[in-house]
Design a protein around this nucleic acid. Structure first.
Lengths: 397, 397
DNA sequence: TCAAAAGTGTTACCCTTACACCCATGG
DNA sequence: CCATGGGTGTAAGGGTAACACTTTTGA
């Protein structure tokens, strides 16, 4: 294992950031070198074979005279202050290595966020071991700090994961809000297959994975407007079939923060599309839906959902028309159905139904292409509302 | 500082989770005790006074023959694999204490997420020091693991990320965020009609209007959990049919602020329900859907949407069963269909279909009620998946 | 003249719908 | 004995699905 050990006595330690009312931090003034007389986060050594959490609790007692109880469930530890009937989750924030402490060993930073009356909280605190003074300090005006504690604190506040707050307070503005994005699945028929437009992510998380295009909802636009804006940014197209698919909101679906994503899907004519890689994408490409790459986030689940919806919906609506140019042949129309449904349809039955519902306007032109009989061209009558595959069914728009 | 040190030679170590294509994990088989022959995450000791990141890179080289470069900016480290032109952020996941390793010391888990060709990646790997074998293993079928590595992996995938870090320091707070609520439309069959539960608002806006129950999405609960929580708060019921309906997000739908509402609907048995007015409601009451009062916000639109969905869905799914008690008569079942569809169904045709699909289990009991012939009771067979009204149709759950 | 796609009807089967009378019970 | 809802079968009609050969063109 690694190089030979050189038998130093390495000390690990723990530091504690008491985040009080999201305003104050509890600091202690050090009685000993290194950094004698400097302010620091309360902390101390982790004894050999001692748990990190045990060390934290011991340090609270020895440095601050603070007696707490703990309650563990799974990998979560709750710290309880019985005298003031408060509790909070003990969060492990980050482990810093020896660069930050001349004594060597690693230092693991923990944080405890409490919403309490300042006086009440401080009444529980007593100057302990190796401590000259204890004080609540406003987080925006910190004194000079020992070790790298200023850096610890600034990292804590710049990347704090949301904590849950008191349930009793119903003021919406005090609640932590999730981010809301609109993801859009853009489908087209191309190269004899159903294709979807994906973009390649160029940052963490899921760097180099392919993903559905999407973006944040602006405060003054509707969800559909967001979807249309994204669609235009990615493809340049504007008048297409667009439908809300589903809203995905698992708390952990995006590792950065809570993101709720409203998924839309669009059906576009591939000959209209000019792919433009938007700013947040390294690359953009059409993929056949039956040979997709690894997708980012939960986009595989979203994709499955969309394909189900399209295949289901094409049977009782006329959405397939969105994928055809203005003038088209009956074979082209049938081809779209076959591609989306993934199965062959009988030619005579298909044509019989198409013609009997009167949704198509026969044109006098023919499409001459290839060494075979020319095909008659048709266009759509907008007003009619019956479906092709199930003419007896109602049409749901 | 704490108790007196007892001069043990404590070893800290690092473990590395290669998260490949969001599907595979790189494991090594250990050549030495402890846990000889077991599979483990690649890892190794952190030398005294060695950086955590340096230890990680050294371990990659010694255990896996993997030569990487690093690039540090701020507290973020990027790992580069020059041979295959890939890079990824090295994430510090969590520090585990000595409980997880009999040798004592803390173990810090790092993760590296890569989207690469499996073969290409493995071509960079060579069995190294103290390693019998190296393999990419599907994350869903892990072998028995050394130490607590199975636990490490499971915590990693449940996204235990103490806080988020990103090259560009992703800062969700720089965008203004909308509020997100879940509204829930609770339907039941009661008094020979389809009814919906509404609550009376007791504050501005729409004071004294009736509205669908709803509430804010908490940061750590999924949308469905929010809906279930609201449902339980309002009605006390827990095991019901619940389905996401649609997400409403017009910028002006709530006069207070931007509120995006994810609507769910539930079908409940009215005999199970005990209406409790939650704290934010002056009153809660069942209303027949064909004589609704004025509704707050855009709740009339949401209601129309829900009724469309239910009436449509009852024809090709078995959701109606949710509205019946465990034992019921065929007339009661037919009644539910007639109430929801708002039209009469032929008794003989209905019974013929119900019986021929075998979804019902005839019971030997009768229901004796009123001055007429007793009715046979039935219960549902859960396993069958054909619909009543369109037995030929597929069933969409 | 051959390959390739366009174009064209009929039939069997199954599902849906319409329809009327007897049965068992309580009052 | 009568009012009330429970319980039962058949036939017509319509939509779906299966099936094969001719037409037109370019090479």
């Amino acid at each position: 294992m690694g190089g030979k050990s050189s038998m130093h006595d390495i000390m690990n330690s723990v530091d504690i950031l008491f985040d009080i009312n999201n305003k104050f931090i509890l600091l202690v003034r050090r009685a000993k070198d290194p950094f004698k007389d400097f302010w620091a986060l309360p902390g101390g050594r982790q004894e050999p074979f001692e748990d990190l959490v045990t060390a934290v609790i011991r340090v609270m007692k020895q440095r601050l005279g603070l007696v707490v109880k703990k309650e563990t469930s799974g990998s979560t530890t709750k710290i309880i202050l019985p005298e003031i009937d408060k509790d909070a989750i003990l969060h492990q924030i980050k482990t810093y290595d020896s660069g930050s402490d001349p004594r060597g060993g690693n230092t693991t930073l923990f944080a405890l966020q409490l919403n309490v009356d300042k006086q009440k909280f401080m009444s529980l605190i007593r100057k302990g071991d190796a401590v000259l003074d204890v004080r609540l300090v406003d987080k925006s005006s910190l004194p000079k700090m020992a070790f790298d504690h200023a850096e610890f604190i600034s990292q804590y506040y710049s990347s704090l994961k949301p904590y849950s707050e008191d349930e009793h307070n119903y003021d919406a503005s005090k609640y932590e809000k999730p981010s809301v994005t609109v993801d859009i699945l853009i489908f087209t028929v191309r190269n004899n297959g159903l294709n979807v437009l994906l973009i390649k992510r160029k940052t963490w998380p899921f760097k180099d994975f392919w993903a559905n295009p999407g973006g944040f909802v602006e405060m003054d636009e509707s969800l559909e407007e967001t979807a249309l804006r994204e669609l235009k940014e990615e493809t340049g197209v504007e008048n297409v079939y667009l439908e809300q698919l589903y809203t995905f909101g698992s708390p952990k679906r995006d590792p950065r923060t809570r993101v709720i994503s409203v998924a839309y899907y669009a059906l576009v004519r591939s000959d209209f599309v000019k792919i433009k890689a938007a700013t947040d994408a390294a690359d953009a490409k059409w993929f056949p839906v039956d040979s997709l790459p690894n997708l980012a986030f939960d986009h595989e689940e979203i994709m499955r959902y969309a394909l189900d919806r399209i295949r289901n919906k094409i049977e009782y609506t006329n959405i397939a028309f969105q994928l055809l140019p203005e003038k088209f042949t009956l074979s082209e129309l049938q081809n779209v159905y076959e591609i989306i449904l993934g199965k062959k349809i009988d030619k005579r039955n298909f044509r019989k139904k198409v013609k009997e519902i009167g949704l198509l306007k026969p044109l006098s032109e023919n499409k001459m292409e290839g060494a075979h009989r020319p095909a008659q061209l048709f266009s759509f009558r907008e007003n009619k509302k019956r479906t092709i595959l199930n003419p007896g069914k109602k049409v749901y728009s």
